[in-house]
C-alpha cells in the first residue's frame, strides 16, 4: 500500500481539537474531584495522544502491521502496570502482618 496522505485541513482540525482539550483538562484540574481528577486528566491525555498518533502520525490509516505493533506496545505497558500495581493494591488485604 502507498503512504497515507491526509489533507492540511484534517491536520488543522486535529490541532484545534488538541488545543481545546488542553484548555479543558487544565480547567477541570482546578476542580477538586478527588480520585476522579487523576482519572479525567489521564483520560483526556489518552484522547489527545490518540489524536496525535492516529492523525498526525496517521496510525489510523496505516497497514495492519503498524496497528499490531502499536497495540503490542500499549498492551505490554498494561501488562507491566497492572501486575505491578496488583501487588501494591492487594497488600494488606489479608489480615496477617506483612502480607
Amino acid at each position: 500500500m502507498t503512504a497515507p496522505r491526509l489533507s492540511r485541513r484534517t491536520y488543522v482540525f486535529a490541532y484545534l481539537a488538541l488545543l481545546a482539550l488542553t484548555l479543558i483538562t487544565t480547567l477541570i484540574a482546578y476542580l477538586n474531584l478527588g480520585v476522579w481528577s487523576t482519572v479525567i486528566a489521564i483520560g483526556i491525555a489518552t484522547v489527545m495522544a490518540s489524536i496525535v498518533a492516529g492523525i498526525m502520525m496517521h496510525a489510523l490509516y496505516e497497514s495492519l502491521l503498524i496497528r499490531i505493533i502499536v497495540s503490542g506496545g500499549i498492551i505490554w505497558f498494561f501488562f507491566m502496570i497492572t501486575l505491578t500495581l496488583g501487588d501494591y493494591i492487594s497488600r494488606g488485604w489479608l489480615p496477617v502482618p506483612g502480607k
Binding site: 483538562t25 487544565t26 484540574a29 476542580l31 477538586n32 481528577s37 491525555a45 495522544a49 496525535v52 498518533a53
Partner: peptide, 16 residues
C-alpha cells in the same frame, strides 16, 4: 505524546 502525559501527571494534580 510523551509530553502530553507528563503534563497530565506532573502539572495538573497540583492545581486543586
Amino acid at each position: 505524546i510523551v509530553w502530553i502525559f507528563l503534563y497530565a501527571i506532573f502539572y495538573l494534580p497540583g492545581l486543586h
